[in-house]
Every structure is written in structure tokens, then in C-alpha cells.
């Protein structure tokens, strides 16, 4: 069964005003997200194409649980899908403005004065996304300060933040209309679905010219994506079908599988312990698409303690 567009459809059907706001912001985000190319011209795609894929994975993972999600939660999730990487394309002015307000960035730059601005942005982009959303909140016209905060936290939550922190991610955030937003669940979803967008279609063929890549790190990254032919959400697992014919990147692929498995295990644990939801999928499985043999089993318990 396909859950394509389920979240968006429910939002449109049950909360048309929130959906209108979502639609307007989708249009707005087209130009916001493309700006990452100013700092990362050869980087993996971080435009709204990535957001669409994140939402598609959210739809698959939420599945039948959609009946338990209220429209405010859906709105927060969809907006975070679009805005979680907005920090990748901030202006130099915003970079200096935001950095001055972030002790961790100040400390990092003091300890690493030679580090390029683009690298600082890459390391802290989840936090810059939060700052960006907060600074430009009038553009997005969110329904309330609580919606704003929920979207900021969920967007920041796509990497590094502590999803077990009660202050940052309270299990239940009560809105004025009585609806509850389950921030740990939404943030874990964004973190996991962001990681799952690793297949070949992450970088749509005609958008990129591989001959333009000069840095080894970019060549490896693109070749890894090309090798991962498909990511599918099945009934009880997430399956990666991988072409291992490029031996030069095999080691890097398995490093990424390990990282994905760790993230998956962590997100399942957060969802299990800090929300009323349960993911159907319990593990990552990697298959060789030539032999159809499983080459990377992963148990949710293996990487987490």
C-alpha cells in the first residue's frame, strides 16, 4: 500500500487554512533553499527536491499512524521538512549575526580559526536553520509562537540535538487549541528521513554534471549516491538496494550504512521511549542489487545502549 501524499492530503482535507499556509510557504521555500549553492556549489542536493523526498519518507514511516496525528503536528512536520536545511544557504550577514549569538560557534571558530565559513556552516547548519526560521518568521506567518518554536525545534532536530532533553523536546507541547505536538516523534522522524534520502535520485541526473566535480570528497559522495539504487520502506524494515560494482567506494558505503543504522536505532529508541507512537520498521537492511543477497543486517538493539 502506498502512503504517498497522505500527510498533505489529511492537512488539506481537515485543516484547509493550515494547508494554504503550507502551500504558500512551499512556494517561498523554492528560492530560500537554492541558496545553499552559494556556499556549496558541488554539494549533494539540498533544495526543495530533498524536502519532497523527506516528506515522501515521512509519509511511508508514519503510515497508518496518520490517524493519530493532528493537523498541527502535520503542519509542523511538513514545514520542518522544508526548512531543516535553510541554514545551509544563509547570507554572510546572517552568518555573522547568528554566529555572534551562538557560544558553540564562537568557541569553535576561536579553536579553529583557519576553518572556512562554508565548513562552519556545514557543521552547525541545523542551528543556523533554527536561527533563520526565527529571524524570518514573519515571512512564514506561522499560526502561533508555539508553532514557531515547534518548527524550529523539529528543524534543528534533524541532526546532533539531544532528542532526550525534556526542555528542548518535551514529550507533549500543548497548543492553545488543545492539540498536542509530540516533538520527540516529529524530530526523530525528520532526523531519520533526512538520513534516508541517500539513493541515486538524491541528485537527479540532468541537474548535475559529474565532470565538474574536482574534490575527492564530492566525487566519493556522488558515487555513493549513485551506487545506492533504491531506498524502500517495507512492512517491518527499510531496505537499501545497492550496486557494489564500484569497489573504490565500498568501504565508504559501509561506513554510511553503519551511520544510518545508528541513527535509525537512536530514532526508534526516542520514538519508543518519548512518544505514544511506534514505527513498524525495526531495522535497516542492505541488499546487493545484483545478487539480491543481504549484505548488511542491522538490529535496532545492536547500535544503541
Amino acid at each position: 500500500m502506498s502512503f504517498d501524499f497522505a500527510l498533505e492530503t489529511k492537512l488539506m482535507t481537515e485543516a484547509p487554512q493550515l494547508h494554504k499556509l503550507f502551500s504558500d510557504n512551499v512556494l517561498c521555500c523554492q528560492n530560500i533553499l537554492i541558496k545553499y549553492k552559494s556556499f556549496f556549489p558541488t554539494f549533494t542536493d539540498h533544495t526543495s527536491l530533498h524536502s519532497l523526498e523527506v516528506i515522501a519518507f515521512c509519509n511511508e514511516l508514519v503510515g497508518f499512524m496518520i490517524d493519530k496525528l493532528n493537523c498541527d503536528e502535520i503542519f509542523v512536520l511538513l514545514m520542518a521538512a522544508y526548512l531543516h536545511d535553510s541554514g545551509m544557504g544563509i547570507s554572510i550577514g546572517d552568518f555573522e549575526d547568528f554566529s555572534a549569538q551562538m557560544p558553540m560557534v564562537i568557541a569553535y571558530r576561536n579553536e579553529n580559526p583557519e576553518t572556512d565559513i562554508s565548513e562552519v556552516i556545514r557543521i552547525f547548519h541545523h542551528e543556523f536553520s533554527g536561527m533563520f526560521i526565527k529571524k524570518y518568521r514573519m515571512i512564514f506567518d506561522f499560526p502561533s509562537e508555539k508553532h514557531l518554536w515547534a518548527i524550529i525545534q523539529t528543524s534543528r532536530g534533524h541532526r546532533k540535538t539531544d532528542l532526550y532533553d525534556d526542555a528542548e523536546y518535551p514529550p507533549e507541547l500543548m497548543l492553545d487549541n488543545g492539540n498536542v505536538i509530540h516533538l520527540p516523534f516529529l524530530s526523530a522522524l525528520i532526523r531519520l528521513t533526512d538520513e534516508l534520502d541517500v539513493a541515486a535520485d538524491r541528485n537527479i541526473q540532468f541537474m548535475f554534471d559529474l565532470r565538474s566535480l574536482k574534490r575527492q570528497i564530492d566525487i566519493i559522495a556522488f558515487n555513493k549516491h549513485i551506487s545506492i539504487r533504491e531506498v524502500s520502506c517495507l512492512e517491518d524494515s527499510v531496505r537499501l538496494s545497492v550496486d557494489f560494482s564500484n569497489e573504490a567506494i565500498r568501504q565508504y558505503l559501509f561506513e554510511d550504512f553503519e551511520k544510518l543504522a545508528r541513527t535509525f536505532a537512536q530514532c526508534i529508541d526516542v520514538i519508543d521511549k518519548r512518544s505514544p507512537f511506534k514505527l513498524r520498521q525495526k531495522r535497516i537492511e542492505v541488499y546487493d542489487c545484483q545478487s539480491d543477497e543481504m549484505v548488511f543486517p542491522s538490529d535496532a538493539g545492536t547500535f544503541f545502549h
Partner: peptide
Amino acid sequence: ISSAGLRVLLASYKK
């Protein structure tokens, strides 16, 4: 058209 199809359309639009 699925989300995969939409992505290709959007990519064409950007291109």
C-alpha cells in the same frame, strides 16, 4: 503522478 514524478518535474523547472 507520485512524489518521485513531482521531483523530476520540479528538477526540470529548476534546470
